[in-house]
């Protein structure tokens, strides 16, 4: 089981990782500042296997791939939202961070609830509740299965 960190609607990429940290040479140096403007304690509290749950349009704004990358680097297992912004969604798949659309989960859970995602079955379990989530388009599932775009390209060669 992982802990849910629950965020609002229209979480933008500046909120996930602010511009001034993009100049740090590595994702590992950036990750301590994840969600800093919303919750300065997030990076300390989140553990490997935890989940980010949000409402509509998660990851809107800039094209910065550092946004999904810092989440992955902190060990976030998946982001589950009602909907995602396009570039964030594509970037997340390309780096191998599962991004899952589930319309019902957000309103059914509280921050710090426990949940588990069963990616192959497309199921989320939390407490005694179970939700089904949307599967990825085949093209994206393939990239994710191979561990991201780099691994996927190497596979094709």
């Amino acid at each position: 089981m992982g802990t849910i960190f629950r965020f609002h609607t229209d979480v933008d990429t500046d909120q996930i990782i602010a511009s001034q940290y993009l100049l740090y040479p590595t994702i590992d140096e950036m990750k301590a500042h994840t969600f800093e403007s919303l919750d300065p304690t997030f990076a300390e509290r989140v553990k490997v296997g935890d989940y980010v749950v949000a409402a509509e349009n998660f990851g809107c704004g800039s094209s910065r791939e550092q946004a999904p990358s810092v989440l992955k680097a902190l060990g976030v297992k998946a982001v589950i939202a009602k909907s995602f912004a396009r570039i964030f969604y594509r970037n997340a798949i390309n780096i191998g961070l599962p991004v899952i659309v589930c319309r019902e989960l957000y309103d059914a859970v509280e921050d710090q609830d426990e949940m588990e995602l069963y990616l192959d079955q497309g199921i989320i379990k939390t407490g005694d509740k179970e939700f089904s989530c949307t599967r990825l388009p085949a093209q994206m599932q393939k990239i994710l299965d191979q561990g991201g775009l780099i691994a996927s390209l190497n596979e094709e060669e």
Binding site: S63, E65, I87, R90, N91, N94, I95, G148
Partner: peptide, 23 residues
């Protein structure tokens, strides 16, 4: 382009869009 505002070039009728650095 590696920037979300790459949509700008639609002003001359080009299909342009932002991507991440891996892409």
């Amino acid at each position: 382009g590696t920037d979300s505002h790459t949509t700008t070039y639609g002003c001359v009728g080009a299909f342009s869009s932002g991507v991440g650095y891996t892409e």
